[in-house]
Amino acid sequence: MNESLFINIIIGISIASVPLMFAAIGELLVERSGVLNLGVEGMMIVGALLGFVVMSHTQNPYLAVLAAMAGGMAIASIFAFLTQFLLTNQVATGLALTLFGLGFAAFAGRGYTEETIQLITAVPIPYLSDIPYLGPLLFSFNPLVYLAFFMVYLVWWFLFRTKQGLILRAIGDNHDAAHAIGHNVVRYRVMAILFGGAMAGIGGAFLSLVQVPIWGEGMTAGRGWIALGLVVFASWQPFRIIFGAILFGGITILQIHAQGLNINVSAQYLSMLPYLATIVILVSLRMRLKNKTNRTVPNCLGRIFHSTT
């Protein structure tokens, strides 16, 4: 295998992984706060549409990414309102959100299937990208790729290095106790849900702004669901999202390359691997933590919180 093919595989994996990374890191924060939002696919597709629409009208990548975030947040706010204020079941509401998001994006985007835009392209970092080997491997990516890694770091920093992060985790583990000592459970959760929406929005927009300059209904093609699996795979640890995304995205890319190189692979069985690996990880995680009090799964995940006071 030659060097440029290797680099290309890395770039390919990065492009396949980043949408998952964005969506998953957002959902990770949401789940850490004790909320399970199954509507990731719906939020992603709305982000993909809005990013594309704004790009095609303004040709401004910054506005396009902001619009994608706003779109994801807007639709996430429906989920936040229903689950946090009207106390609806999160699983059912998340599923409804996916339906609604897919329908809304398909309908609103009907006028844009004929259009094409200027892609947001990779920006090699001056000087650094000229370093042999390391340059193309580390410093020649799309700006949004770096942003994805930064967001993972940011979420880790927030969760484990700030007071608010500690509170958010406490809420996710025991909302009644957190409430009892005076924390505003609902406010934290609403913020987390909106952040999750924004991240899913960028994740979706990565598809329509970086990967392909087109808009098509259903173009997220199930990536939101994969992102949900990824959060579990990462066992709610931010940095593991990176490895998980690379694994999930990497399997797709490696399988494609293997086919091109005439290596016989069974697409279906290979594609099952990440999910089976996720289950194995869940089990091994439990076996390791059996005797410790520190449990990584947010205990209140999916449970409804309502304060009477």
Binding site: Q211, V212, G216, M219, T220, A221, T252
Partner: peptide, 8 residues
């Protein structure tokens, strides 16, 4: 129809 995967 999966634009992302087709592009990959």
């Amino acid at each position: 129809y999966d634009p992302g995967k087709e592009a990959d």
